[in-house]
Computed example of a mutant assay.
Amino acid sequence: MDKLALKEEFLRFMKPEAVLMDEPMKKHTSFKIGGPADLLLMPTSIEEIKRIIDICNIRKAPYFVMGNGSNLLVTDRGIRKVAIKIADNFNAVNIVGTKIIAQAGLLLSTLSNKALKESLSGLEFASGIPGTLGGAVAMNAGAYGGEMKNVITSCKVLDREGKIKILPIDEMEMGYRTSMVQTQHLIVLEVEMLLEKKDYSIIKDKVDELNMQRTTKQPLHLPSAGSVFKRPEGNYAGKLIQDCNLKGYRIGGAQVSELHSGFIVNVGNASAEDVINLIKHIQTEVKSKFNIQLQTEVKIMGEN
């Protein structure tokens, strides 16, 4: 991939500050870890996203799509791809009655707050989730009994060939931490949601209650990527890890959180290698003690 030639091509229709070469990914992940991406693009419109995909396809340049990096671990050597960051620059939202149409780069926490202001219920669970709407749809994000699939009516997506499609919710194959967006490598552009009108104070009390639980039970003061492992059927990853006496266990700058064993936190200049080695150690210990193979929820990308 000729990244310099590609950069020049993208600069024909994107602002210079939205086309970054050899950009350290630690600046773009909640873990604050990661080597450089060959190119990092921050599109502002559907048309820009479509043109980026068309160019990547024509030039046979590998690419991947990310939100604000809240569920991403980039390896220390970085990524030899075009990273397309759909976040702050692509976050418009429109609310009409109980219907919300929002662009994929909108933060879930912002979306939840906007719903609250309109006395709309259904997104209370999302108030403290740090990811973008697009990422939340891709993995059917959920917490405290709520899931994205319960509020979505349809999604506008871009496929690998650069074609735009509208997918109704019953065609999106949304399950536990998965969806057609993820399995077919679609790009979420816009999401239509239908919420329920409720008393403002009832919604606000629920949001406050859930945020209090997060604040007291999760290590929000340290860089992390949220829950590292998927929930094993009939069990909880955090409890299994804690029962292996791994709470506080550390490799380099990566540590099993002392507040919530399902989190790995960056306690001091952790490398991606530190985190990956800690993940492997946890998996080995849990497998040995409980015969359960923990599967990662965090996405690991980049050169080994």
Results as ranks from 00 to 15, higher is better:
Gly128His: 02
Asn245Lys: 14
Arg250Glu: 11
Leu222Pro: 00
Gln242Asp: 15
Thr110Gln: 13
Gly253Ala: 00
Tyr63Asp: 00
Val157Met: 01
Leu133His: 13
Ile101Lys: 14
Gly78Lys: 05
Leu240Ala: 07
Phe13Gln: 01
Glu303Ala: 12
Thr296Arg: 15
His260Trp: 10
Asp208Asn: 14
Gly128Asn: 03
Thr296Ala: 07
Glu8Val: 05
Met25Phe: 07
Met14Ser: 03
Glu303Met: 08
Pro43Ala: 02
Leu195Gln: 01
Leu73Asn: 04
Glu124Phe: 01
Gln182Cys: 12
Thr296Asp: 09
Met180His: 07
Gly67Tyr: 05
Gln255Phe: 03
Pro223Leu: 03
Pro219Glu: 10
Arg80Glu: 13
Asn304Asp: 14
Met193His: 06
Ala104Gln: 01
Glu48Arg: 05
Ile52Gly: 08
Gly253Gln: 00
Arg231Ser: 09
Gly67Asn: 04
Glu273Asp: 13
Lys156Ser: 08
Thr178Arg: 03
Met193Tyr: 03
Glu23Gln: 01
Glu118His: 13
Tyr144Leu: 04
Ile164Lys: 09
Met14Trp: 04
Met25Lys: 05
Ala141Ile: 08
Leu133Arg: 09
Ala272Ile: 09
Met66Cys: 05
Tyr144Glu: 01
Ser261Ile: 08
Asn68Leu: 02
Tyr236Pro: 02
Lys206Gly: 00
Gln184Arg: 14
Ala254Arg: 01
Asp159Cys: 09
Asp159Thr: 06
Asn245Cys: 10
Cys56Val: 06
Ile86Gly: 03
Lys50Gln: 15
Leu194Pro: 01
Ile33Asn: 07
His28Tyr: 11
Met174Lys: 04
Val228Cys: 06
Met25Val: 06
Met14Asp: 06
Lys149Asp: 03
Thr29Ile: 12
Leu240Asp: 05
His28Gly: 04
Val267Tyr: 04
Ile101Ser: 11
Lys26Arg: 15
Glu171His: 14
Gly175Cys: 00
Ile86Tyr: 02
Ile292Asn: 07
Val207Gly: 01
Val298Arg: 05
Val267Gln: 08
Ile101Trp: 02
Phe263Asp: 10
Met66Glu: 04
Asn245Val: 09
Gly105Gln: 01
Ser271Lys: 14
Leu106Gln: 08
Glu9Ile: 13
Gln182Pro: 06
Val93Tyr: 03
Ile95Glu: 11
Glu303Gly: 07
Glu47Asp: 15
Asp54Asn: 15
Tyr144His: 10
Ser288Phe: 09
Leu167Ile: 14
Gly175Glu: 05
Lys27Gly: 10
Lys114Phe: 14
Asn235Arg: 10
Val19Asn: 04
Asn291Gly: 02
Lys50Thr: 14
Leu158Tyr: 05
Leu133Ala: 11
Val151Tyr: 02
Ile33Ala: 08
